[in-house]
Computed example of a mutant assay.
Amino acid sequence: MNNLAQKPDDAEFQIIKDLSLLELPEYIDKPEYVRRKSAGYGLMAIGWVLWMWLFLPVLTLLFWWFEGTVVYTQVVEQTQPMTSISVLKLMVCIGIFISALFIWASYNWVRFHGEDRRQSPENIDDEGLARSFNIQPHEIVQMRQSKNITLHYSEKGQLEDYQINA
């Protein structure tokens, strides 16, 4: 299982430029091998629905308020509308959007400040790591001590073989 390609210590690293020599498994280049894509797309769709459900009514109300005076003057008073946009109304709309984002950010800061839900993985010994890669523990020690390793994976992403390059 171990193909050692020993070179002198003063040999320089070789950069592989031909991609066919890298022996990359197919699941890296083909997104159809990625699992649970429908769950990701579903979460994205739910997020967009929630976004529209929360903010589109507010945006619609702001647009109606902003242009409501134009409609009122044209329909009820039957006068010509103002040609310029009211700067005060524009500033109020911008202020409402800034306030909404500030409130949302403040809520998230208060709720999640100082909390880190991410957990680091537990430490694993050489035997456990060797079992996960289906190799011997002494090979893990060799890999750790080497500076350059070429790994060969199967189509399913399992480690098939490796080369330690000096």
Rank of each mutant, 00 (worst) to 15 (best):
V70G: 05
M91Q: 06
R111L: 09
S84N: 14
A100S: 09
V87G: 06
R117F: 15
Q80I: 12
L90E: 09
L88I: 14
V71F: 13
T83M: 11
H113F: 15
I103Y: 07
F112T: 04
D161E: 13
E160V: 08
T83L: 14
W53C: 13
N148V: 05
A105M: 07
N108L: 14
Q14G: 04
L159W: 01
T69F: 12
L62W: 05
Y72L: 04
S86T: 01
I135L: 03
S146L: 00
I140C: 03
V58P: 01
Q145G: 15
W53I: 10
E115Y: 13
G42F: 08
G42D: 00
L4G: 05
I85Y: 07
V76F: 15
I85Q: 06
A45G: 10
A100E: 07
A5G: 03
E155I: 01
P57A: 00
K89A: 01
F66V: 01
Y27M: 00
Q158S: 05
I28M: 08
L90C: 09
V71N: 08
S120V: 13
L43M: 10
K89M: 02
Q14F: 12
G40T: 10
G40S: 10
R36N: 15
L50A: 09
I135P: 00
P137T: 02
N148E: 11
W53G: 11
A11L: 11
D9G: 03
R131W: 05
D126A: 10
V141F: 05
V110P: 00
Q78Y: 03
R144P: 02
D18Q: 07
F97W: 13
P137A: 04
G95M: 00
L129K: 05
I16P: 01
S99L: 15
M143Y: 02
M52F: 15
S20R: 09
L151S: 06
L24K: 13
T150W: 13
Q74T: 08
Y72S: 03
P137F: 04
S20G: 02
N165V: 06
K7R: 13
Y153F: 09
K89Y: 06
I94V: 12
L4M: 07
R36W: 07
F97D: 04
F112I: 03
I15H: 14
Q80S: 10
L24P: 05
F133T: 00
R36D: 14
C93I: 14
L21N: 09
V49T: 13
A166S: 13
P57S: 02
G42Y: 06
E67L: 15
R111M: 12
E122Y: 07
T83V: 07
Q158E: 12
K7E: 09
M91K: 07
I103N: 05
G114M: 03
E122I: 04
L62H: 05
Q142W: 08
F66R: 01
T69C: 02
Y27W: 09
M143V: 00
F55Y: 15
G157R: 00
P137G: 02
I28P: 00
N148K: 12
Y153M: 04
L101C: 11
V34D: 10
E23D: 14
G40V: 14
L56F: 13
R111F: 08
D161H: 10
D125S: 04
F63S: 13
D9F: 10
W51M: 12
P121H: 08
G68K: 01
L43R: 15
Q14E: 14
Q142E: 15
H152C: 05
V76W: 14
